[in-house]
Design a protein around this nucleic acid. Structure first.
Length: 233
DNA sequence: AACAGTTTCAACCGCTTTATC
DNA sequence: AGATAAAGCGGTTGAAACTGT
């Protein structure tokens, strides 16, 4: 990792430059950082900050690169299948955002974390339960995700084989209608063939139709889920 | 059109882990 | 084995964007 030499650079900088820039990055800064990483590669962020004449901390440079500037970073709407995957993986691992992000190509831990906090927690509140409670986890796992996938299947049957879809991550799962356990391929196996860790086209179509988790959290579904929770607990 | 309240998300902070000497 | 610094991680914040009145 970082050597003492690099550490000296950082230390010197912090001594003679106490007013390190904070806040939003400018286009100019982005360009400098992008060019520097393109030439020298990632890592040694304090060194990068110093040598590229960026008046930023190494930490800030690293974060900006990983969350925004990286060429393979995907931003914008979280697709339906990504939402399902996040729900499923979170039910297994909890707030291990970086670990979850490993299974969503191009998504950052920060983005997943933001998604969770802004969308999922909101829905938990609507259900009047703690987002990390067993109650909510079980609700997601055994009721919500199967129900979601059922809708996905239904919508794929409505629109058989539209060949115009863009490539997106796809979701490989068991027939969850019988068994809610989702099978998420954990590493390279399906990625080798599809470029993504999940692989089934039906979810993609639903996503293409603009379906989203939000649509599923209708009054009717919330009522249904509350009923389920009452029955189970 | 203007304002207030709400939501979203980029970025920071502080702590922990890892690597190096 | 201990000290030090960088990298990594998850929690939190605040400004901008959006929505409702």
């Amino acid at each position: 990792m970082g050597s003492k030499v690099m550490g000296e650079h950082a230390a010197n900088q912090s001594k003679d430059d106490m007013s390190v820039r904070k806040g939003p990055w400018t286009v100019e800064e982005d360009t400098i950082l992008t060019n520097y990483v393109a030439t020298h590669g990632e890592g040694h962020w304090n060194f990068v900050a110093h040598c590229a004449d960026l008046n930023r901390t190494g930490k800030s440079c690293r974060l900006r690169w990983l969350n925004y500037l990286r060429p393979d970073v995907r931003r914008g709407n979280i697709t339906l299948q990504e939402q399902i995957l996040i729900l499923d993986l979170h039910s297994r691992w909890g707030n291990r955002w970086s670990k979850i992000a490993e299974h969503l190509p191009g998504r950052t831990d920060n983005e997943i974390k933001n998604y969770w906090r802004t969308r999922v927690i909101k829905q938990a509140k609507q259900l009047r339960c703690e987002v990390n409670s067993k109650q909510f986890r079980d609700a997601l796992r055994h009721v919500w995700i199967p129900r979601l996938l059922e809708r996905v299947r239904a919508s794929s049957e409505d629109q058989p084989g539209s060949g115009t879809e863009r490539r997106r991550p796809t979701y490989c799962c068991t027939p969850v209608y019988a068994e809610p356990e989702l099978r998420v391929s954990s590493n390279s196996d399906s990625r080798e063939t599809t470029g993504h860790p999940i692989g089934n086209g039906s979810v993609t179509q639903a996503a293409e139709q603009g379906d989203s988790l939000e649509n599923l959290w209708s009054e009717e579904n919330i009522w249904f889920l509350r009923q389920q929770l009452c029955d189970e607990f």
